[in-house]
Design a protein around this nucleic acid. Structure first.
Lengths: 194, 194
DNA sequence: AACACTAATTATCTTTTGTTAATCATTCCT
DNA sequence: AGGAATGATTAACAAAAGATAATTAGTGTT
């Protein structure tokens, strides 16, 4: 819970008592490793804060290949973008890579509260801005950096990810194949021992 | 002006009279080809709707290479993401590729109005969601598609872009070099005449 | 311990991209 | 019209990535 409070405390324009009220709406829930949280095609508008664990967003391409679109871990929020911001069924599946603990709310409920009590509005604005900021930064990594540089940056940002997530998922998220990631790793260690 | 009205009319929860009021705050402005709209490093919080023309978002990498992060054209909004959602000086320059006509507002002013009159809030939420949706879709193109597929999709989405924007800018936006784009084009026409 | 299953690495070959430089093609300018 | 400047294409080579398959490593299961 502390993690979530810390996250919310950054929000300008929201006072702590309001937060307490909203947190009352959140339910703690756990997922077992491998469990699917939101299934592809569902219209679930759940909004979750990850207390512990990693959730993977994935789908299957037309050609049958499975791709990992996104990995989210403790301290971050997870929601079905399609269901919430595009109002259509989820194109992706969201599943736990490890035992996961989340705090869950229904976005529809939040929306109702915000419509009735405008003072909660800054909360929504804050989340949207945060997600947008993260997404824009991700676009930047694709335009500015090579696959190897993207991998280095990811490891820099979240070093323990390499021990917690199978490389094939990491590769997919970076837009490359597992074979290519393997070669990148090899090149990096080769260069490390000059 | 019609274009902007059409764009705003899609927004659920905002009534037309409110829109008229906000539009009163917007000023029409033109940019000459090549003119810089927002300069890198500036803290301008201008928000603009493009009536006509194309605006290019770009920066210079550490290694000196110039990159095009984004192209925006008529019917779309332009704003300095850094200044507005990250509250820091712009990392990018925004410049007109053609003579451009925009409707311009100051985001700070909008923010003030929204804080005082909550009924305008859905407008902000709508813009944020729209930008987020676009950004997420862009991330998807990098994860799901090859450079050639990304190029095809861009041309499909905005066919006249190839006649209006130098290929080197398009290439950069797709995360590839101009030479590589040239080869992709060659491959496409070669395959067209089976 | 033996087996099955999955992931990671390696090998081989093909395709694509990056890099650099040269050559066309266009546009713009005086 | 002539010349400068810019952008696009092509060439030639190096580097990286994709595809496929084989091998190795690591898990977990019984």
């Amino acid at each position: 819970m502390q993690l979530l409070l810390d996250a919310i405390r950054q929000i300008p324009g929201v006072n702590p008592e309001d937060v307490q009220f909203l947190l009352g709406k959140a339910a703690r829930r756990t997922l077992t490793a491998g469990e699917i949280y939101i299934r592809e095609g569902s219209s679930s508008r759940k909004l979750a804060f990850i207390e512990q664990g990693i959730i993977r967003t994935s789908t299957v391409k037309q050609n049958g290949d499975e791709v990992t679109m996104l990995l989210r871990w403790e301290g971050q929020f997870v929601a079905s973008h399609d269901a919430i911001i595009r109002e259509r069924p989820a194109e992706f599946s969201y599943s736990a890579l490890e035992p996961v603990s989340i705090l869950e709310m229904d976005y529809g409920e939040l929306e109702k509260i915000m419509n009735e009590h405008p003072r909660y509005e800054p909360l929504r604005t804050f989340f949207l801005m945060k997600m947008l900021s993260e997404s824009l930064e991700r676009v930047e990594t694709f335009v500015l950096y090579s696959p190897e540089e993207r991998y280095r940056k990811l490891v820099e940002e979240k070093p323990d990810i390499v021990n917690r997530v199978p490389g094939k998922f990491i590769a997919s998220m970076l837009g490359i194949t597992p074979v290519s990631l393997s070669r990148i790793r090899k090149r990096i260690v080769a260069r490390a021992k000059h």
